[in-house]
């Protein structure tokens, strides 16, 4: 049997993302990778917590943060996690078209989130002169939130690449694991954001 036949069976299995050894490897390897990412963000959170009151005479978190926009952004990202679940649901039903649609919605929501973040950063910089260099709080805030934003951007590029690359040929056992781990990544980004919302913004406003 050639590779093509193996990867395009007549009947797609229930879990196409784990049907081949390569798929299984990707799946578990990606979970390990997320374990490492967790330590990465934990270190950034630790740094932020150590420096959250180091304003060096500049504005502090209570003065800076408004919760409205951040709340909307949180909702956007949470919803995008849900839409990526829909996409995976359709993947398992071998409905490529619907999967692409829901991935498209996910990307749109992610873009909106990024737009909100850019607006927010811009606001802090121009209204408050609160920058990456102005205080240790600024350095740690932009690093933590910026790392997350960078992850969002990378996730978007990744998902779009997958969508475009496979648009013509549809789903097979070679690309199913790729779609699946991209969606795992997206969930992870979402979970990190929930922590950022709590630790940075909520605690910054009330704590």
């Amino acid at each position: 049997m050639s590779n093509e036949d193996i990867l395009n069976p007549k009947q797609m299995p229930r879990e196409p993302e784990k049907a081949t050894l390569e798929g299984k490897n990707k799946f578990i390897g990606f979970w390990f990778f997320l374990g490492g990412e967790t330590v990465l963000f934990a270190s950034l959170f630790g740094t932020f917590l150590a420096l959250r009151n180091s304003t060096a005479g500049g504005p502090g978190t209570e003065e800076l943060f408004g919760l409205e926009l951040v709340f909307i952004m949180t909702m956007l990202l949470l919803t995008s996690s849900l839409t990526s679940v829909y996409a995976m649901y359709h993947m398992k039903n071998n409905d490529f078209g619907k999967m692409q649609v829901w991935l498209g919605v996910t990307v749109a929501l992610g873009l909106a989130f990024l737009g909100g973040e850019l607006y927010e950063f811009n606001h802090y910089i121009h209204e408050y002169e609160f920058t990456f260099r102005s205080s240790a709080l600024g350095s740690s805030f932009y690093t933590l939130v910026g790392f997350h934003g960078g992850h969002v951007l990378f996730g978007l590029l990744w998902i779009v690449t997958l969508m475009v690359r496979n648009a013509k040929r549809g789903l097979n056992l070679y690309n199913a694991p790729k779609f699946y781990i991209a969606s795992l990544y997206w969930h992870f980004i979402d979970v990190v954001w929930v922590f950022i919302f709590t630790v940075v913004y909520l605690m910054g406003k009330v704590g």
């Binding site: 330590v39 990456f132 240790a136 709080l137 690093t143």
Partner: peptide, 26 residues
């Protein structure tokens, strides 16, 4: 990853003007 973050902070301080390790700026 902990080293990765430490190196990033140092890189930002040395190359991009952040102040993680600059006591004068908190």
């Amino acid at each position: 990853p902990a080293l990765t973050v430490g190196l990033f902070l140092m890189m930002f301080d040395r190359m991009f003007g952040s102040v993680f390790f600059d006591v004068a700026a908190g």
